[in-house]
Structure formats: structure tokens, C-alpha cells
Design a protein around this nucleic acid. Structure first.
Lengths: 203, 203
DNA sequence: CACGGAATTCATCAAGTGTTGAACTCAACG
DNA sequence: CGTTGAGTTCAACACTTGATGAATTCCGTG
């Protein structure tokens, strides 16, 4: 028996509008500079409401991140297809995610990770365990080389994201995805499959 | 005639010790989270003394950055030598700078640039005008392709710095410079000299 | 209708920020 | 000596931040 009475959740838009404002704020300002007061202002609600719904600022950030980032769907896209074009497929996938609405969440966690320690740990673990090990690691043949090769792939992808979406250096910031994929894909491919020095192998 | 009287500068260590503490703090925390009070605490002086010497926090930041970063000396190193190994030379140079004591200043401006707008503008203009145009641009043959090729070089170098020094993803964070140079250099080289799609040319 | 309780608001706290200006110390000059 | 003025300290201002708890609105049920 669930006994209910009193006001029902009725107006649920406010919760999601807070989430939306928070996502935009975190993406634009980063974790620290995005203030709860500003988020509440953008959402048109009282700052105390934010705490009422999400408890603390950290929980709000986690709620924002949990929603759109779901690697379970994306990893298959990265794996299927010929191995010789995996590099181009990876950079296309990354650009696709960052250009999509969910991309603002990615930008948010990325921006935040570079100025805040606990968000940095968050991103590092997410990147290493979810992306590098599960997706990139699958493509690499020699598993002894997988850690180093994965990290190298990360340098090229992360660098492209930083240059295009954070620093916004032209003409890369305004270039279309095809151009970037054609230019960057082969380099990622080399990290994935080309012969590398013996030192790469891990004991 | 210079007329002087009163106490002479005598104790000049405090000024430099403030600078040192500021450099460390900016590198570790970024511009915003590095508080003047904490910097003064680390230097063992009163917070007001910081303002007495440097005026404002922005000026202190600029004073920290101006000292060690002098591209005038580094650019010749990047240019001299065979063009076929320019990529490896560039990544070696970058790693060398970041591993040196001056590297903490680079890390400082980099960390700050990703959370603060005016430091971001600072870094963007520095990278574009001092590094990309003057150094990387010199190596590229077809000047019509120089902007895009320079930006691509920036993606790989910036990505390596982010992965190694900010996110500290292993095994790249602990790898020795030779290994990284051997792995990353050829990819930079491709951005510099290999044939690229026609779309790269700027009107 | 009455009432329980979620939704929402208001006022406020404690902590931390950059910055300022007045005061004090004290070595070097005339 | 006395004056000068840089080195240094102290206290305070004005502001923003995340968070809290009491008070108030108001819908949906019984």
C-alpha cells in the first residue's frame, strides 16, 4: 500500500529546466565558475530550489553528466567496420558527439576537469576505463601495446577537441567534420595499427 | 640628478619569493582558484604585500608569465635542422619546455586558459602569433595551407601536453621524452609536409 | 471542503575573495 | 640627530559563493 496525499510532483519542468541551465552553465564556465545562483537565474527559479532537487552542487554536476553521456551506445559504432578506417571513424564519432546537444555536457566535464581536481579524476577514469580500454583497446592487435597506443590516440583526439572547442583556434574551429576527419584520421590510424618501437610493450 | 633618500630596496628576496609561490600556485590551481592569500601564505608574507609589489592579481599573473616564456630563444631551435625531422624537433622542444622549471609557468597559463576567459585569449594569441605563425608557419612550404596545417600541428602538441601534464594519463605521463618523440613526431611531420586535401587552401 | 505534503520563496549564515588605506618599522641619507 | 620613504603589517570593506532552515504557496487527494 502506497499512501499518498498532498501536492503531487505536477510541475516537473522546473527540474529539467534547472538541469538544462546547469548543463549550459557548466559547459560555458566550468564547474567552479558556474554558480548555483546563476544557474537558478537562467532557469528562472530560486537558488534554494536547486538544492531542494539536487542536494549539493556536486550532485547537480553528476546529474548533468549522467544523463547524456552513455558510452554503451557509442562503442559499437566505433568497433564495427573495417579496421583500416578505425582512426577516421573514431575522430568522426568524437566530433559528432561534441557537435550534438550532448556535446555541451562533454565540453562541461572537459572544461571543469582542467581546473578542478575531483572533476579531473572523474574525466580521467571515464576516459581510461570507458573509452580507451573498452573501445580503442579492442581495435589494437597486440594487447601488450594497447595501453601506450590508446594513450597516444587520446592525445590526438583530446588535442583536436581542445583546439576546436575550448581554445577555438581557426581555421580548425570553423572547419567541417569531413575535412578534420580526413586530416586527423590517418594519424590516429597510425597510432592504432602501424609498427611502433619495441619500448611500447608493457611488461 | 636622481635624488634618493629613505630606505633602500635591501630585502629583495620577498619579491622573488612571491613570484615563485605565485608560479607554483597558478600552475597547480589555475588563475581563479589560486588565491592571493594562499600565495602570500606560501611566500610567508602578508597578502597586502603582494598588492604592494604587483598592484593587481592580473599584473601578478602577467609578471609570472613574462619571466620564463621567451619564444625568441626557442624558435630558432625549432627552425634549424633538416625539414624532414621538424615534427620530432617540435615535440621534443615542447616536452623540454614543459619538463623544465619554466614548464610550471606553461602549465599555469594552460590550466588557467581553460577556465578563465581573458587568460584563454592570452594563450590563444600567444600560440597563434608567436608559435604557430612564426615557427610552425616557417616550416610549411605552401603558405596557403599554413593556417590549417599549423592548427593541426597544434592539435597534436596540445593534446600531448593535456594528456601528459594535465590529465596525467598513463603510461604516457611517465614515459620518457624519447619514446614520445618517436611516436608523435612522425604524425606532426605528416601535418607539416605530407600532401593534404585541396580544401586546406585558404582563399 | 480540509488537510497533507511537495513545491517554492525568503532571509540568513559562514567562509572566502580581491582590494584598499592607514599605521608601523627601520635602514640610509643629509 | 631628524627626516625620508620603502618594506611590512593590520584591519576592514564590499562582494560572491554554497548551503540551511523556517515560512509560505498551492495542488491533489480523502
Amino acid at each position: 500500500m502506497v499512501r499518498r496525499s498532498g501536492r503531487r510532483p505536477g510541475n516537473q519542468d522546473t527540474r529539467t529546466s534547472i538541469l538544462e541551465a546547469a548543463r549550459a552553465a557548466f559547459a560555458e564556465k566550468g564547474y567552479d565558475k558556474a554558480s548555483i545562483r546563476a544557474i537558478a537565474g537562467d532557469a528562472g527559479v530560486d537558488p534554494a530550489l536547486v538544492h531542494h532537487y539536487f542536494g549539493t552542487k556536486e550532485k547537480l554536476f553528476l546529474a548533468v553528466m549522467n544523463a547524456p553521456i552513455n558510452p554503451g551506445e557509442l562503442i559499437p559504432q566505433a568497433l564495427e567496420g573495417p579496421r583500416e578506417q578505425a582512426g577516421e571513424r573514431l575522430i568522426r564519432l568524437a566530433i559528432g558527439v561534441w557537435d550534438s546537444p550532448a556535446g555541451s555536457a562533454a565540453l562541461a566535464v572537459f572544461r571543469s576537469a582542467l581546473s578542478n581536481e575531483w572533476t579531473a579524476r572523474l574525466l580521467r577514469e571515464f576516459v581510461v576505463t570507458q573509452i580507451l580500454r573498452r573501445a580503442v583497446g579492442e581495435i589494437i592487435e597486440d594487447q601488450a601495446e594497447a595501453p601506450m597506443r590508446s594513450a597516444l590516440v587520446a592525445t590526438q583526439i583530446a588535442g583536436t577537441m581542445v583546439t576546436r572547442y575550448v581554445l577555438r583556434i581557426e581555421p580548425l574551429a570553423g572547419a567541417d567534420p569531413d575535412t578534420i576527419a580526413a586530416a586527423v584520421g590517418p594519424n590516429i590510424q597510425r597510432f592504432l595499427t602501424d609498427p611502433m618501437p619495441e619500448v611500447f610493450k608493457q611488461p
